[in-house]
Write a protein that binds this DNA or RNA. Structure first.
Lengths: 238, 238
DNA sequence: CGTAGATTTGAGATCTCTCAAAAGATGTGG
DNA sequence: CCACATCTTTTGAGAGATCTCAAATCTACG
């Protein structure tokens, strides 16, 4: 493995801003403006981008990789609230609410991202009215996802919650040609996302496999019939 | 009781728009513009404002009363996701996401509100750039609340979830001079908010009373030591 | 091959739900 | 003002789900 272990600085020029919804809201001039102010990085896997409680200095735009957002619980228990990927904007919510980071962002794969400092954003908000409206819609969608997931995870039996979590991962990261999930999480991580101990998670995965919704192949998870799983996940509340 | 049983039409003039954050974002001219387009109503308690699945025709601005937002579950089970009060704007999220209503809004007390049709809003959004930015911040705050509540309600023991629900009600509706909650919910309603059957809710309320966090007086709930309850609610995850 | 870490299994304890029934509150009509 | 019907709240017992803890198995890697 030739994996880089340190954070490296990258040039904004290497990124294709056309692919990213956020930057498509900007004029060519505005894009040049933030390009001049942003700093871009390559993070190796398992490295911290920012920590819960830190002051917000700007937002992060992900171009490549997967980032895990977690909240620290009691007894060092870690709760995962979301996995972010390319195109996602991290930290805009607490920035707009003028708060400290309320979660920790940690890469789980190699990640490329750009940091846009607060002042540059403020300038954009003042002059580009599309941008608030665009972000408003992004926030509304996140709000909806959060509300749904709240439901999925709070009023259901464990195996349904596990199914719901897998559905979310399926929708966000899709599967490869063998139906294998395109996000590779150890059991503990998946358990932290569902909000259950790993032992209980495993028992529920077995249940889902017995129902033929998924196929476990070592630590790989193959999604057989996504629609059935969606239906199953909705069981208690649908 | 001289309670009106029917929905009555009201004049926009009787409301004080100065008190409402939303309308403070508007110029005098814009305010006149929407006043001309809005319809205002008095709803008696226990009446439906809109139903899950209906097409969105605009938003509702609450001036007085308490509105319960629910989602229908299987076996006719009803899940309450939020209680709204004066100053709240209902339905802006699905409107901006261009979806159907994903919850039902039902008054639990007499309620006065104004309906603002979609076209009037669209017009405002086009011309008033404050408004998106304001709503963006509202959405971010709701997103934060939703995320917190997701936690409070999903990864905790029942009695902690009940405490968390009471904390939310305390923060939203406060208490009177006897520390009694300013929102009066039958046990079933409270249970629907926590996401547990009423029998289990009652047992948890008893636990909280034994811990001296609350005092049960018939169906009234008095909050004794709110900070202790906040701490207790954070137990498993804080 | 051996070690450390991850995953899995199983047993018992604990928590929450379900169901049935008792107790209390509310409202109506006589 | 009382008796009755209805609805809400409360209690208790038993079933079921999930968590905790300990131990077994598997995997990756030097």
């Amino acid at each position: 493995m030739n994996r880089r272990r340190k954070i490296q600085v990258l040039e904004p020029e290497i990124f294709n801003f056309e692919e990213i919804d956020f930057s498509r809201q900007l004029s060519g001039q505005e894009l040049d403006f933030i390009k001049a102010q942003m700093s871009c990085y390559h993070f190796p896997g398992r490295s911290i981008i920012y920590k819960e409680g830190q002051r917000i200095k700007g937002v992060y735009l992900i171009f490549k990789g997967i980032v895990k957002m977690t909240i620290n619980g009691s007894k060092g228990k870690e709760h995962t609230i979301r996995f972010s990927k390319n195109g996602d904007l991290l930290g805009y919510r607490p920035l707009l609410c003028d708060e400290l980071y309320c979660s920790t962002a940690e890469t789980i794969t190699e990640t490329e991202l750009c940091f846009i400092p607060r002042q540059a954003l403020d300038h954009l908000f003042k002059n580009n009215h599309n941008l608030s409206y665009y972000l408003l819609r992004v926030a509304c969608n996140e709000l909806k996802e959060a509300n749904n997931f709240l439901f999925d995870i709070s009023r259901k039996k464990l195996s349904e919650r596990v199914a719901a979590a897998l559905v979310v991962l399926y929708q966000r990261f899709s599967v490869d040609e063998n139906n294998k999930l395109n996000i590779d999480l150890p059991r503990v991580e998946l358990a932290r996302f569902v909000g259950t101990p790993p032992e209980s998670l495993i028992k529920s995965l077995n249940t889902l496999e017995r129902n033929n919704f998924i196929k476990l192949d070592g630590k790989q998870i193959k999604i057989n019939r996504i629609q059935d799983m969606v239906d199953f996940a909705k069981m208690s509340t649908a």
